[in-house]
């Protein structure tokens, strides 16, 4: 008994990228901050594209703590939402060709968010990845790490708790 023939790679990639783009594009604050997401399989990396408006200390200069916090929180929320969307896309439960309102999940709500500022953010691009440590039906716990030039020299990290959206049907 052979497994069914896999779909062509381009079709699979297009479907996954379309879902991710739709998830990210509809949040105005993500656009305002200039955050983009790269995908390797199901793994996401967020980039905060440097802009002068993100500065919080013009003397150094350094990124604003609030911009850093927002970058980490956005990364955590998109990771959480992407995890559930990914499962639905891969199982075929969701068809991304359908109108977005039918399949885009509602976003998780932040309950609390704690940021450690480890070193000052330099005036250049920053990167972040989130790890979902617990994802229950109602609550999730997520850890996020952010770096700039060197992956192993974090400039900030955060842990947050989130209230998961109720399912689209219920």
């Amino acid at each position: 008994m052979s497994r069914p023939r896999p779909e062509p790679m381009q079709i699979v990639k297009q479907r996954r990228d379309a879902a991710l783009d739709a998830l990210v594009a509809r949040v105005p604050y993500i656009q305002f901050l200039g955050i983009e997401f790269d995908r390797r399989g199901d793994e996401l990396t967020a980039t905060l594209n440097y802009a002068d408006k993100l500065i919080g200390n013009p003397m150094l200069p350094a990124l604003h703590g609030g911009a850093t916090a927002a970058f980490l929180e956005v990364t955590a929320i998109i990771e959480l939402s992407w995890n559930s969307l990914w499962a639905e896309i891969e199982s075929g439960a969701v068809d991304v060709e359908r109108p977005e309102v039918e399949w885009l999940p509602r976003l998780p709500k932040t309950i609390d968010f704690t940021v450690d500022y480890l070193r000052s953010g330099l005036p250049r691009d920053a990167y972040a990845r989130a790890r979902v440590n617990r994802s229950g039906r109602r609550y999730a716990s997520v850890h996020v790490e952010a770096w700039q030039d060197n992956r192993h020299k974090l400039f900030a990290q955060a842990t947050g708790h989130f209230l998961m959206p109720s399912s689209r049907d219920g």
Partner: peptide
């Protein structure tokens, strides 16, 4: 500054800032 496009609620990150 909207974080939830369905409700128009401001993003937590803006409140953090």
């Amino acid at each position: 500054l909207i974080g939830d496009p369905e409700t128009g609620v401001i993003h937590g990150g803006a409140v953090s800032a």
